[in-house]
Amino acid sequence: MKLIVVAGARPNFIKVAPLLHAMVRHNAECVAGNGAFRPLLVHTGQHYDVMMSEIFFRELNIPNPDINLEVGSGSHAQQTAAVMVRFEEVCRRDPPDWVIVVGDVNSTMACTLVAAKLWIPVAHVEAGLRSFDRSMPEEINRLVTDALADLLLTPSADADDNLRREGVPEDRICRVGNIMIDTLVANLPQARARQAHVRLGVAPGRYAYVTLHRPSNVDRRETLEAVLDELLRLSRDLPVVFPVHPRTQKSMEIFGLNGLRSPHFHKIAPVGYHDSLCLAENARFVLTDSGGLQEESTYFRTPCLTLRPNTERPVTITEGSNRLTSLSTLAGDIEAVLNGPERLGRVPDLWDGRTAERILGILLENPNPHVSLARRDH
């Protein structure tokens, strides 16, 4: 079975790694190649910074991409169009049995559009997540991808419910669990060995781990300055570890905020996956606008404040350690977290490190793409 596996941005690499590793294990057990997978890894190049992509390939032991589309940055339209043009060439040259897309970045939607128009079945890993906020580019990507994909592989019950409300047939929905936790479980020993907090001179449970990159938080001077002021205030009582995303760094330079300093405000370069896991597990709390870090902190039961009005991962709130915050409530929410328990919530069901195995099992049960094509045709 030939599969094209698409990765475009940093979170995608975390999600494709367990799929690729599971295929290697499966193929090793096949006799004379019968029932084997033949994956083609396509990196769209949506993230091209070394610390945002290449280091993840090294740390996660992902093979070098078979194809790199090298689309780079640009507006949403430019980036989507570039992915579509270059990915179409790949699909036409050697059509696969399935295209596997993950997450909700521009590359996810663009490759799904291409495959759908070429009548190539699409499996979407992490389907059904919704923030119900169409001002987020990711929400548009999710809606379009799930409307076109043939197999919707969901991480949680709320994702199933979202798809049903949108009229998706039940036979296209398969709950498989959280693929990111597969990678977390597999990499936890290496992450703990990194001792990233020790290298930064902060004690376990005695620092805040902060990541911010969404336009709503970093693209306006007033918003970004208010967040940084709160972090500087916090650092007087609790050290702050703040790996700065390239987008955030650019905004800080444009707005003249790059010179903000405090002895315990550790503004550092982006960190690799292992260092990030280590920092999340050992933090007193996490402040983020990242979807992935909401899930990772839930697994560790580290208290998490998400600086957004909504989340497409409500299970991290209903069962995990996450809560939403805003500029107006941030100071009070931080105080509440610091006055609360050091561990919160529970690990949700199917966050067990075996999601990739379940996905491959479903693909093996559906080897004939014509089934999907016939369904779409009707």
Score class of each variant (00 low, 15 high):
332 G>C: 03
311 T>P: 01
263 P>E: 10
149 A>V: 08
296 E>W: 04
347 V>I: 15
276 S>D: 11
126 E>G: 07
179 I>A: 10
122 V>D: 01
158 D>P: 01
110 A>Q: 00
5 V>F: 02
362 I>N: 01
329 T>Q: 12
140 I>N: 00
136 M>N: 10
336 A>K: 08
287 L>E: 02
127 A>S: 08
59 E>T: 12
32 A>H: 06
16 V>F: 01
85 V>A: 07
270 P>T: 13
234 L>S: 12
101 V>P: 00
193 A>K: 12
369 P>A: 07
258 N>R: 14
300 F>T: 15
374 A>R: 14
27 N>H: 00
135 S>G: 13
154 T>H: 01
284 R>T: 08
148 L>Y: 08
349 D>R: 15
108 T>F: 03
358 R>P: 04
165 R>K: 15
265 F>W: 04
57 F>K: 05
360 L>F: 00
24 V>I: 04
269 A>Q: 13
122 V>C: 05
147 A>Y: 04
287 L>P: 01
331 A>C: 07
226 A>P: 09
49 D>M: 08
341 P>R: 02
276 S>V: 05
119 W>E: 10
282 N>F: 14
304 C>W: 13
293 L>P: 04
10 R>Y: 03
6 V>Q: 11
335 E>G: 06
212 L>T: 05
227 V>P: 04
280 A>I: 15
155 P>E: 09
116 A>Q: 01
232 L>E: 14
109 M>N: 07
10 R>G: 06
18 P>E: 02
3 L>A: 02
319 E>I: 13
152 L>N: 08
220 R>F: 08
344 L>A: 12
268 I>S: 04
182 D>V: 02
353 G>V: 06
304 C>L: 14
46 Q>I: 10
172 R>D: 04
165 R>C: 03
203 A>M: 15
271 V>C: 12
173 I>P: 08
280 A>Y: 12
22 A>H: 01
283 A>E: 05
141 N>E: 03
122 V>G: 09
20 L>H: 12
59 E>L: 03
276 S>A: 15
167 G>W: 10
29 E>L: 02
294 Q>E: 13
